[in-house]
Design a protein around this nucleic acid. Structure first.
Lengths: 331, 331
DNA sequence: ATGCATCCCGGGAACGTTCCCAGGTTGTGT
DNA sequence: ACACAACCTGGGAACGTTCCCGGGATGCAT
């Protein structure tokens, strides 16, 4: 299908070693001959066969990201950050959604992997600490190891809670999705309770509503529980934008105006956060930067250089129209 | 790093040919010996080296999708459809976002590519008709070749226009994004004008607003032009959901209720279409099915079987709350 | 016992590249 | 003229797999 280095050598009338010297740039070669070989290779669109190169142990600069769901803005931003960083360092980046592919690619010269919220649980990658693997997950900062990287989720939760408290809110509801694995290692919930405590507000368990899924109707049901109470909160912090959308619907159904009667904020800054009415105040996690950092870490590990101290990645408060000071009456 | 077939052979005390026979299942081998080899290979987690296999011309069952933007529901659905189909046929699927990667992978045994709205414009893939490449783009049905596949976009536009006409609308605005390449090969616009004609309504050029980008503010500006007129339309067909979001904002600003004063519909059925208030009536293109079909076509081409007649892929009307009959007054 | 087919296994070549080593040519100093 | 270094080039081995061919062992019929 493609022209080989031996064919090229035969056409010019030199040995394949000489052609290789011209193409790789290493070793001694007559300048004139080198140019001739290069132009000939160019003309025939010579591309070295990857498999043969891998077989003799040459480098491939091939990396991959494994992720479950590609269809969200976060992954897209992450991928862009990682991809640009990889390209700048002359690395290649693939994306896969099955562990099986990783094992195949590994045999094809894959040099490193970033797992995007994916638990490597089987196959040779599982406990091969020699293979460069950057883990990206929801670990709490204190749990993160040398090859882990994460966003300061807790900080984001504290940001939004402080924002609500500064606006004057005192009764703040929180809608959270219960993680089946470890229900209490939830940074957002920790931020909610922590900031309340700092503000000297007693934690009221009935203001914390636990729902099952990251679905609009779960947010709706959670908000309904909070908003139907006679002493309803003046603000709701939903742990995800999609839950906040459900809060909007609940508020409409109960004829409560946002933000006049009830302030609502989310977390994620999904594409649609600014499309809602009123536009949703939320937290934007720096996924682009995360991708960049993760790829930097990976490349450093591949090249066996040690990575400089990992700076924390802080989310950002995006103020829009869904939060206001509580009304006098409700205070 | 990994155990080779020769090492395996040495451990058992047979030749590599015998080990290969046991692993591949082809050729004659004593059953007892075969089992012994298989258990030994299993115990040492033997995985054949992909590069070596490719080098001698073995199959890899490796395919790839190249796409520009992963962060939308359409691509996610498409990928799931294609991925499931690939897995069912024992094929592997990668995702890339640069043409360069394709050329590398090709040398690593890549057997076929699906291009997701991507114009292959350089490199060896450009005009190598021998390499299996399924093209997925916005071609009109009559322009599609043997290796093209597309959704019946025109049909979707006709669906939504018929829906509006059946509700009784006569003055219908259309917001369209002008394609710089060929401005008049726009199936959605064709559906708009075609259905008007079929209904015996004269086409009014001033009801067709052209905007520059797929952005919320473009939809807003387009809708403003339409809604500020004294003889404003009773319905707007925006060619994309994101433009419809802009229409919502324009309507709110002009104190027009949706759908009582103005009906609005989009196209795409993005994630947020049901999150808007009122929920957006729109068209859902069958991207999951498209992925499945595209992968089927690709596998057929790889295996040099001819593909059965490609059935058209029809979008679906998703009726929600943003369309109603026009009010008596506006009629 | 001999011929022949069948069954099983080992030995080698090939794929395309990179790397190492040896050998040939040229240039320079004595 | 000779020794020697520097420069350039070719020849092979190696990587791990698959495929083809040949050869030894066994079984069966003559």
């Amino acid at each position: 299908m493609s022209v080989t280095i031996t064919e090229l050598a035969g056409m010019i009338g030199v040995s394949k070693s000489t052609v290789h010297r011209a193409l790789s740039g290493s070793g001694q070669i007559r300048e004139e001959l080198k140019q001739q070989i290069l132009t000939c290779a160019e003309a025939h669109q010579y591309m070295p066969n990857m498999s043969a190169r891998v077989l003799v142990g040459a480098r491939t600069y091939m990396t991959a990201i494994i992720a479950r769901d590609f269809g969200n803005v976060h992954f897209s931003q992450f991928l862009k950050g990682a991809g640009d960083t990889a390209a700048a360092a002359n690395y290649h980046l693939l994306t896969v959604s099955r562990e099986e592919e990783l094992n195949n690619l590994r045999q094809s010269g894959l040099e490193g992997v970033i797992s995007f919220f994916w638990d490597i649980k089987s196959g040779p990658l599982k406990n091969q600490s020699s293979f460069p693997l950057i883990h990206l997950n929801k670990v709490m900062p204190q749990d993160s190891g040398e090859n882990d990287i994460s966003i300061e989720v807790l900080y984001g939760a504290e940001l939004i809670m402080r924002h609500l408290l500064e606006k004057g809110h005192r009764r703040i509801g929180h809608i959270t999705v219960t993680q089946p694995d470890d229900p209490d290692k939830n940074p957002k919930q920790a931020g909610y309770r922590g900031e309340l405590k700092k503000a000297g507000i007693k934690y009221d368990p009935s203001l914390l509503v636990k729902v099952r899924f990251y679905r609009e109707y779960c947010g709706y049901e959670g908000a309904m529980k909070l908003l139907r109470r006679p002493d309803r909160p003046t603000a709701i912090f939903a742990m995800a934008d999609v839950l906040a959308v459900g809060c909007y619907r609940a508020a409409r159904e109960l004829n409560l105006r946002i933000p006049e009667d009830i302030s609502i904020c989310g977390y994620d800054d999904k594409e649609y956060a600014s499309y809602l009415y009123p536009a949703l105040t939320t937290i934007r996690p720096p996924f682009g930067l995360l991708g960049q950092r993760a790829m930097e870490m990976l490349i450093h590990r591949i090249e066996k250089r040690c990575y400089p101290s990992p700076e924390p990645l802080f989310p950002e408060l995006i103020e829009r129209g869904s939060v206001a000071a509580p009304s006098e009456k409700s205070k």
